[in-house]
């Protein structure tokens, strides 16, 4: 029994040492021409397999492939609580130069919806905005609906109870875009939240729902295969190129300039990061941005290129935060 107890203690000790070794490490940054001293934690504020995850892993792939950084970027998913977990994690890693985060719009929405978290996003260190993802209104290719006008008529005819709109979650992007649509056209739909955009797209193709506001990347394959149809794009005119540029915008269809909503694809670091650390990350992402792979990816996935750094990015974040506050208030999600 005594031997057993000793070995148990030894095991416990070993585990402790292991755990300590992982959680604490050198956290200081050298003064100039900063380079990471160890692998960089690349926090993704969404779960595995979603749009943000795929994008971040794609960027990691480009960095790895071309050797843009001397140490690897290791993706860590912290999607819990619509990114609340990731935001709290970043807050706790104040001054840590080896942590960066890929953000989406939950970067604004989660702190607004959950003020108890005590997150002030203006404190984080901005790195860059790489692009803005767009939204379109989609229906099944078999439906008779060919235009936004047809759509509005069909929804009004069916009534809210019989028109199912699928989207990702409640109080986040898809539901806000749906609310914009409802307000603009005076229609009502039954909104069904799903876990990810991929599932939403599949539900539309399987005819379990009547329409979606998917991102291009989620519907592109089905559209190409002739299974879904985009009606209009929630972008200002002329922003999208290629195939997605052929989709009319709400503005072009004469519904005004306010039917615009983007999903930002930005990267940030914790609070209290040295200027040269920030410069290092901006440098890495600049190389990624200029790579052929990234330029190609944006075109294929219907994204609007949007390189933005420094104070311009900080101002953008502030403006977006306020815009989302208003959207949430309009949707009745917050006071």
């Amino acid at each position: 029994m005594k031997r057993l107890a000793t070995s148990l203690m030894l095991g416990l000790g070993a585990a402790l040492i292991l755990a300590l070794g992982v959680t604490t490490g050198p956290r200081d940054a050298a003064a100039q021409g900063w380079e990471p001293k160890k692998p960089v934690e690349f926090v993704i504020m969404a779960g595995k397999g979603g749009g943000a995850d795929r994008l971040s892993r794609f960027i990691q792939g480009i960095i790895e492939k071309h050797g843009f950084a001397s140490k690897p970027f290791v993706p860590v998913n912290k999607g819990g609580g619509s990114g609340a977990e990731a935001l709290v994690y970043l807050k706790q890693h104040k001054g840590d130069p080896h942590v960066i985060m890929a953000t989406l719009n939950s970067y604004y929405l989660t702190p607004l919806r959950q003020p108890d978290l005590g997150i002030d996003i203006s404190k984080f260190t901005p790195i860059t905005r790489m692009a803005e993802d767009t939204f379109q209104l989609w229906v099944h290719a078999d439906s008779d609906i060919k235009t936004v006008d047809d759509y509005v008529k069909a929804v009004k005819k069916a009534g809210a109870a019989n028109w199912k709109m699928g989207g990702t979650g409640t109080g986040i992007e898809d539901s806000l875009v749906t609310a914009m649509l409802e307000k603009k056209f005076g229609i009502k739909v039954t909104y069904i939240p799903y876990k990810g955009g991929g599932t939403v797209a599949k539900e539309l193709i399987g005819k379990h729902i009547d329409s979606t506001v998917n991102n291009p990347s989620e519907q592109a394959g089905f559209w190409e295969a002739g299974k879904s149809r985009p009606l209009a794009s929630f972008t200002p005119k002329g922003k999208l190129s290629g195939r997605f540029g052929e989709i009319p915008t709400f503005e072009e269809l004469g519904y005004g300039t306010d039917m615009v909503y983007y999903m930002q694809r930005s990267f940030i670091a914790p609070e209290g990061i040295d200027k040269d650390v920030q410069a290092f990350y901006v440098g890495v992402f600049e190389k990624v941005y200029k790579s052929d792979e990234w330029q190609d990816y944006m075109k294929k996935k219907g994204m609007v290129p949007g390189w933005l750094t420094g104070t311009a990015l900080t101002e953008y974040f502030v403006a977006e935060l306020e815009a989302h506050r208003k959207l949430l208030q309009d949707a009745g999600e917050i006071q």
């Binding site: 819990g80 609580g81 959950q114 409640t170 539901s175 939240p193 799903y194 876990k195 999600e333």
Partner: peptide, 10 residues
């Protein structure tokens, strides 16, 4: 336990 995707609340 965790985030409820339907209501969007933890």
């Amino acid at each position: 336990v965790g985030l409820d995707i339907i209501s969007g609340e933890p």
